[in-house]
């Protein structure tokens, strides 16, 4: 298990939650805050192991609920759901393609707030809902989709920067050299 990658992914989730709480730009210009956790869950389900995926879903969900009026733990299950829909099919997904990252980010960013709202309503909570919610959902989905490839690039770059570079070995071997000539 690559602990460095897990730590980097969890660190990214922690910083993402912090940024969502302090950045006002998206809310002011787009009318909705973009959730970065679904994008990180997509990364974890394609590039990390099951333990990391579970940790991102649990800790990310608890972190975001701690800074929100959500009941504690309500964001955990939707993040799990998004991750576990992707994880079994990871072998079939071309994770290096921008298009694949975009589409998975779009799906996860749309699914997570939808499931969270369903859970909130089933718990008889009264979130702020109206026609504007559809716009917020659109912004969250599209914003999350666009940020997913960026999350991949950032987390991969950070993991590479903190890891040892693989030693570049030449395939040349002197004892296997073919000598050509008349002798």
């Amino acid at each position: 298990m690559n602990w460095l990658n897990s730590i980097v992914v969890l660190l990214a989730a922690f910083v993402a939650v912090f940024l969502e709480a302090v950045l006002r730009g998206p809310r002011e210009f787009l009318g909705a805050q973009i959730d970065l956790l679904p994008a990180i869950v997509v990364y974890a389900s394609l590039s990390s192991d099951l333990v990391t995926l579970s940790l991102v879903a649990v800790l990310g969900g608890l972190w975001i609920d701690a800074l929100s009026a959500n009941p504690l733990g309500v964001s955990v299950l939707p993040l799990f759901a998004a991750g576990f829909l992707i994880y079994p099919r990871r072998g079939l997904i071309m994770r290096d393609q921008f298009y694949a990252r975009f589409v998975l980010g779009l799906g996860a960013s749309a699914l997570v707030p939808f499931l969270t709202l369903l859970l909130l309503l089933s718990m008889r909570r009264t979130p702020l809902l109206g026609w504007g919610t559809l716009w917020q959902w659109f912004v969250m989905s599209l914003g999350g989709a666009l940020l997913t490839p960026i999350c991949f690039w950032l987390i991969d770059a950070l993991t590479r920067a903190l890891s040892y570079l693989p030693v570049a070995e030449s395939s040349f071997r002197a004892d296997r050299e073919i000598r050509r000539g008349r002798n």
Binding site: F14, V15, V17, F18, A21, V22, V58, G61, L62, W63, D65, A66, L67, P71, L72, G73, V74, V76, L77, F80, M123
Partner: peptide, 30 residues
């Protein structure tokens, strides 16, 4: 998933205390 269900069913006071404690992790960043 079991953990999430346990956390969701915590008593209100305990859940509030845990939320505040977890939220405290972000204080250095603020």
């Amino acid at each position: 998933m079991l953990l999430a269900l346990v956390v969701l069913n915590l008593p209100h006071h305990a859940a509030s205390q845990i939320k505040l404690a977890i939220g405290g992790l972000f204080l250095p960043l603020f």
